[in-house]
Amino acid sequence: MDKEKLEYFKAKLLQMKSEILNSGILSKRDDLHISSDDLPDEADIAQNVIEQEISFNMRDRELNKLRHIEFALQRINEGSYGHCEDCDEPIAHKRLENQPWAEYCIAHAEERERSDHRFKRVS
């Protein structure tokens, strides 16, 4: 990948990282506790638990994305960015445009997804 494209993707990754860190979703803590005064009945408790679960899932998803972004930035510095971790072939520009932290070409990403899906069904 040429230097101009690398700089483009680096800037894009840094922007995404900044958005995640500045969104406050990773530091938000007000949904971590339930006050018994605020929850007079079981329906309120259930609703609060559902909201907490959604919040935890969102936080987990953003944290996971942040890890992938950090790894992509590390690959840029090492000179391996834009190449599949399995086959070392270039990852399609369109794929990197949509998911700049992609570690695998589309064929290997789909293969891993199928494998993960099969593993989850078995366990």
Rank of each mutant, 00 (worst) to 15 (best):
E42H: 13
R67F: 02
C87D: 10
N77V: 02
R95I: 01
I34C: 05
A92M: 14
E42L: 14
E89C: 08
N77I: 04
Q74M: 12
D60E: 15
E111Y: 06
I54C: 06
Q99E: 05
D86S: 13
C84W: 01
H83Y: 13
A46H: 11
N77L: 06
C84D: 10
S18V: 08
S115R: 05
L73R: 04
R118V: 10
I34S: 10
G79E: 00
F56D: 08
D38A: 14
R59G: 06
E89G: 03
P40Q: 02
N64I: 09
Q47T: 09
L26H: 06
Y81K: 04
C87G: 01
E42I: 13
D41Q: 00
R95C: 06
D30K: 03
A92L: 15
N48D: 04
A46N: 15
H117G: 10
N64K: 05
E42K: 14
D44E: 13
E51F: 07
E7G: 08
D41C: 08
Q47I: 02
D38Y: 03
Y81V: 00
N48M: 01
R59H: 12
S35P: 11
G79F: 02
A46S: 13
H68D: 01
I45R: 15
A92W: 05
N77Q: 14
S27H: 11
A46K: 15
E89S: 12
D38F: 02
Y104G: 10
S23C: 05
L6P: 06
E62P: 01
R114S: 01
Y8Q: 05
G24C: 02
L26M: 10
S23I: 06
I25F: 05
K12P: 03
E19V: 04
F9L: 05
H33Q: 12
D60V: 02
H108W: 02
D37T: 09
D116Y: 03
H83N: 09
D116C: 07
F9G: 07
H33W: 06
Q52Y: 09
E51C: 02
H33V: 07
C105W: 03
G24S: 05
E53F: 03
P100Y: 00
F56S: 13
G82W: 00
N77R: 12
I20Q: 04
Y81E: 03
R75G: 06
L32P: 02
D116W: 03
R95L: 06
H117D: 15
E111D: 12
E111G: 03
E78Y: 10
L14I: 09
E53D: 06
K65V: 05
E62T: 00
D37N: 10
I50Y: 13
R112L: 13
D41G: 09
S35D: 15
E85C: 00
N98T: 02
C84N: 08
A109R: 08
I91H: 00
E97W: 04
D44C: 11
E70F: 00
G79P: 03
M16K: 08
Q15S: 13
L14N: 14
K12L: 06
S36L: 01
E110Q: 15
